[in-house]
């Protein structure tokens, strides 16, 4: 492994050329019907959720969104979900379980939004609820991390049966800048931090934190084709298990850490 490997992956994960949530949804789920709201008084645009048909079956799709236009970026807090966003995700995931629909999560977030309003609305409690409840839903749940997988804010959408990552994506406890700032009081040492943190897909696969890596090309159509291929194969496999079997496998998946 070259010295700058991890730092290069971090840069690629954050690249402006990265496939967007909108592209992913329109290409993978042409008949997507968006469903809004957390039913507690809010609708966070940083979480997009809805229904679609995928591989000949109904699925629930839940994705983080950073927006494209500047207003969208501000409204989504640059892809950082608020407690309301996590509650919307939980609501839709529970609904999916009710109808035995698989849930497909797509994650690209720097992390949960760390604002004053988010604190007052219970950011910690919202994430905690997802970890407690989504993990116990007896329906297939697969997460694809397609950019940044930032900390608890990503984990709250990645606590199901399998987690896959695009080749140029990261999954970590904190951003390399934050890590360097906390441990060495120097955020400029982020490249060094990235190397040590083991946040690349290959590091994480070796540690069995994820199930696999999806190759990524410059052509976004090709990227979605690869994702479609992996998701349909994995769904077919997970569909073979009963709800109870899924929970048992999931229990084992997390117990090993």
């Amino acid at each position: 492994m070259t010295k700058n490997n991890a730092a290069a992956v971090v840069a690629a994960a954050r690249s402006k050329q990265k496939i967007t949530t909108k592209e992913l949804i329109t290409q993978l789920f042409p008949n997507f019907i968006q469903l809004h709201g957390d039913r507690c008084g809010g609708d966070d645009p940083a979480i997009v959720g809805g229904l679609a048909t995928f591989a000949h079956q109904p699925v629930t799709v839940i994705a983080t969104d950073r927006g494209i236009a500047i207003e969208e970026r501000v409204a989504t807090h640059f892809g950082c979900p608020t407690p309301s966003g996590y509650r919307k995700a939980l609501r839709l995931a529970k609904q999916a379980a009710k109808f035995h629909r698989p849930v497909l999560f797509f994650v690209n977030t720097p992390g949960a939004y760390p604002g004053q309003s988010a604190e007052e609305d219970g950011q910690g409690a919202a994430i905690a609820d997802n970890l407690l409840q989504i993990s116990q839903l007896p329906t297939p749940i697969i997460t694809v991390i397609f950019g940044e997988g930032g900390s608890g804010g990503a984990l709250a959408l990645a606590c199901g049966d399998e987690v896959w990552m695009l080749e140029n994506s990261t999954y970590s406890i904190l951003s390399p800048e934050g890590f360097a700032s906390i441990l060495w009081k120097d955020s400029s040492r982020s490249d060094e931090a990235a190397e040590i943190m083991q946040l690349t897909p290959s590091d994480l696969l070796r540690k069995r934190v994820i199930e696999g890596i999806i190759p990524e090309q410059a052509d976004h159509q090709q990227v979605t084709a690869e994702i479609r291929d992996v998701l349909s194969k994995r769904l077919k496999k997970l569909n073979e298990f009963s709800g109870a079997e899924l929970l048992k496998r999931r229990q084992k998946r997390y117990r090993k850490f």
Binding site: A128, L131, L132, S135, Q136, S151, G152, L155, C159, Y171, S172, I173, L174, F179, I182, L183, I196, M197, Q198, L199, L204, K207, V209, R250, Q251, Y254, R255, F257
Partner: peptide, 16 residues
């Protein structure tokens, strides 16, 4: 921090 992603995974493990 010194245990990286393995620390994050504890949140999911304990929650289960």
């Amino acid at each position: 921090m010194q245990e990286g992603i393995m620390s994050l995974m504890q949140m999911a493990k304990i929650s289960n």
